[in-house]
């Protein structure tokens, strides 16, 4: 297999000028045809192995999370789902227990564990933001969840959630994630919406899933404009 200079630049992580200098100085196994240089993958591999140089001939993934498309609130909410009129007991453990049972995307075997984790988080510090809204989430990533999700639960009766403003909570957004990086992203996207007064009012109408997603999309669109 022949490898071009431009490809080698990427796999060695240096600029073209550097490769050209190395060729001139005789530090690379190169074959020259007229005025163009080419490399043979086998020679390069031998050479790299002999000199303990890490050589990654398959193109490496671009650095940073910037390049990946982050999961949007839109898709997360679609995965998580919206649940209405949840009838729960008057205290936090029973609220969480009931809600978790409702969330379809969580495998049944792990529901107990999830409840446990969420309760631990609540014990440390209540996730009730105030204004009747809470965002329960576990502290550590859950490996039994495939895709990050946000599940919205509207309670039948408001419950005392030890929220920051001591108001009873009626709306919960569960943020569940397989990797930490989604957590922060979803949290910031969600809080962006919650800061909007209009949105809080809108939540009180207990919208359906489709309505909620639509509202979020328009909100995000205006924010990024």
């Amino acid at each position: 297999m022949e490898i071009l200079i431009s490809e080698l630049c990427k796999s060695l992580g240096v600029s073209r000028t550097t490769i050209e200098r190395w060729i001139r100085q005789g530090k690379l196994p190169v074959s020259q045809k007229g005025r163009t240089y080419s490399f043979h993958a086998r020679d390069l591999k031998n050479w790299a192995a002999k000199n303990h140089i890490s050589l990654n001939l398959t193109p490496r993934p671009a650095q940073g999370s910037e390049a990946e498309t982050p999961v949007s609130l839109h898709t997360a909410l679609k995965t998580g789902g919206v649940y209405h009129d949840i009838d729960t007991g008057p205290d936090v453990p029973s609220v969480i227990n009931t809600c978790v049972k409702k969330i379809k995307a969580v495998p049944d075997d792990f529901k107990a564990d999830l409840t446990q984790q969420l309760l631990e988080r609540e014990k440390a510090l209540s996730t009730g933001l105030g204004g009747g809204i809470a965002i329960p989430h576990p502290r550590i990533p859950l490996d039994y969840i495939e895709h990050p999700m946000v599940a919205a639960c509207f309670l039948k009766t408001p419950v005392d959630y030890h929220a920051l403003d001591n108001q009873p909570v009626s709306t919960l957004f569960f943020i569940l994630f397989p990797e930490l990086k989604f957590h922060l992203h979803l949290l910031s996207a969600l809080s962006l919406c919650l800061r909007n007064r209009q949105f809080s009012e809108f939540l009180k109408t207990r919208p359906k899933q489709s309505e909620l997603i639509e509202k979020i999309d328009t909100l995000h669109l205006t924010q990024t404009m």
Binding site: T18, W22, K27, I53
Partner: peptide
């Protein structure tokens, strides 16, 4: 630092 290290490897390697 990144390139310095690469250059050092290139200059001192055994070939």
């Amino acid at each position: 630092l990144d390139l310095y290290r690469r250059e050092l490897i290139m200059q001192t390697n055994i070939q």
